[in-house]
Design a protein around this nucleic acid. Structure first.
Length: 120
DNA sequence: AGGATGACATTAC
DNA sequence: GGTAATGCCATCC
């Protein structure tokens, strides 16, 4: 190909990939920050947090929470309203991760893998 | 270069 | 059941 033109163009930023993946989470389910980093095979939980901090209005940020089922204090009141309205399994201020954690099916997993590949 | 900072995770008490 | 200490990864002084 072109010797000087770099073939490894990044269609996706890490931040964009996080947002795309978050938008795939079905209502009533959640992923942890660490889950997303692992699925994208890039960065870490804290990077996902950074990405969510700048998420647009269309990304369901209340479906991305900590691995222990909690969410940052300032976001909790608004998040809880969403959890209740979409019937996310939770007790008190903690989401039941065993029930609520999203398990992508093979087709969805393939889509996620495409996101991951476009990063590396 | 080196340290502080985070929408975090894990382990140990 | 909690909280606290460490580790973690990237970014920004």
């Amino acid at each position: 190909m072109h010797p000087l033109a770099l073939p490894d163009e990044h269609p996706l930023d890490f931040t964009d990939a996080v947002h795309q993946l978050a938008k795939m989470i079905p209502a009533g389910h959640v992923l942890s920050y660490g889950d997303i980093a692992e699925l994208l095979e890039s960065g870490g939980a804290r990077q996902v947090g950074k990405a969510m901090q700048v998420s647009a209005d269309e990304v369901p940020w209340w479906r991305v929470i900590r691995n222990d089922g909690l969410i940052t204090e300032t976001l909790y009141p608004s998040a809880q309203a969403h959890w209740l309205s979409e019937k996310t399994p939770c007790r008190g201020r903690k989401v039941n991760m065993a029930q609520a954690r999203w398990k992508p099916n093979p087709l969805q997993y393939a889509e996620i893998q495409k996101l991951a590949d476009s990063l590396s």
